[in-house]
Amino acid sequence: MPVQSKMSLTPDSPLSVNPSRISRWAGAFHALFSTKATALGTTIVLIFVVVAFIAPLIAPYGVNEQIYSDARQAPSADHWFGTDHLGRDVFSRVLYGASDILFLAGLGTAMAVMCGTAVGLLSGYAGGMVDEIMMRFFDSLLAMPALLLALLLLGTLGPSRNSVFIVMVIVYTPIVARVVRSVVLSVRSKGFVEAARLQGESIEWVLFREILPSVTPTLAVEAALRFSYAIFLVASLGFLGVGVQPPSPNWGLMVNEARPHVGQLPWALFFPAAAIAIVVIGVNLMADGVKRLLQA
């Protein structure tokens, strides 16, 4: 059946629903649930993503709603996670916080992965002086601990949501770029790349069609790990008071705000801290599933 086989060779044809793509998604889905651990991780992440979207629908109270008469209450039927020192419902804030942290960390990671991939591909493929200059510049950025670099940048940019996003991109781009570059270096001299080059393919084609697919497995695992670190970073910056500004329900900021009251209102600290821990564990477990999937 020559026609059919031809169709399958044009994967990007908008007119056709590619059966191999469906099976690939199904395979990915299957792999993400392939072990108990990754299934758990994926479930956790999915739950939080869903929560992030529907928080306004399911949260029993407003995100910053202050009910003075209910301030400082222990967990109860009315307030599942209790209330904080300003009379805000901790459960509602933890729900709202999911979107705050996942959105910011996700967007930051995506942007850093894109920038890092582009730079890594170019740098690794170009080699020579371009590569040297790029990598030494990134080395200088990487020489500083991520949090310290973030604090320095935020000191300059001023604390805000946008600044946190920019900081994440600046901090994580070099890391992603290094990983991508290392893979590029190993495949650059492979036969299929050479062949494409000799065929006179454009540099974009060689980079994105020949080299990028080899990078993807590593990149996916790296992206997933970066995402978990990004959650940590957003939470840490919130905790240090230099990231997202109050009264945002950022979990790190919530922990910071609850800290002086921990003796009397431990629940106001425990639940956001637990949310951070659970999401990070979930993402890590899922990252392992991603690795398994791509290695298969």
């Binding site: 921990v262 600290l269 425990f270 801290a273």
Partner: peptide, 11 residues
């Protein structure tokens, strides 16, 4: 350990 540290620092 991170969670513990956070809780500890809070204390």
């Amino acid at each position: 350990i991170f969670v513990l540290l956070m809780a500890l620092s809070a204390c």
